[in-house]
Write a protein that binds this DNA or RNA. Structure first.
Lengths: 105, 105
DNA sequence: TTAAAAGTCAACCATTTGGTTGAATATATA
DNA sequence: TATATATTCAACCAAATGGTTGACTTTTAA
């Protein structure tokens, strides 16, 4: 979890996730949009890889990267678990507001 | 987004989120389960506050902390947006497997 | 076989992070 | 009023982060 959320905490890496979400990309393709060295982009890719969000296949000198949906889903589930708490809280607030409104009359 | 995911990338802070998800907590309550100084916990709380996930009300010397569901929901939405991509990919894979199985016969 | 292309690696640097301690602040209580 | 409580602040430290550059490896193409 640490690695997943940490990977997503950087805008460069989130954009990379967006890129591999739509289709597979090579390392150079992933690096291209960014104003940084290939080595720097390569490091970002490795952070994504450590988190499991990104998986890589090497064919010759080409490294092809794709998204691992299961890992993505794990982060989603973590958040989703707490969703009921905050919606509950919201419901409670809503009830309070309703009561307050009723008491106006 | 940077701040939200960064806040969630630390296990101490995720546990603090869990704690305020169920109900409001003071700073000392939030710090209590952890083997670290109050000052260190206070820093974690400030990271959560910067992300917007945690909100604080001060009454006298007591700081009461609660979860901001809207901010939590924003992170959830970011992930949920890409959910369709990976489920699509999964569906495509499933179709491939089905085809492969059919060809076995 | 020579050169270009795709990537990584290692060393370096500034900044941020996550922790510490000791002092400071403000509020409640005896 | 003196003291305990709740919390932050500032200075410090080691480790991690995000970037750089230059050298290196492997594979492809001329």
């Amino acid at each position: 979890m640490d690695h997943i959320f940490h990977a997503l905490a950087d805008p460069t890496r989130r954009q990379m996730v967006r890129m591999i979400a739509s289709r597979e990309r090579t390392v150079s393709e992933l690096a291209e949009p960014f104003d940084m060295s290939l080595a720097a982009a390569s490091k970002h890719i490795k952070v994504l890889e450590r988190s499991g969000l990104l998986e890589r296949t090497v064919q010759g000198r080409i490294h092809t990267c794709r998204l691992n949906g299961d890992v993505m889903a794990r982060a989603l589930e973590w958040l989703r678990f707490y969703e009921r708490f905050w919606t509950q809280q919201f419901d409670a607030l809503e009830r309070e507001l309703y009561k307050a409104k009723k008491e106006e009359h």
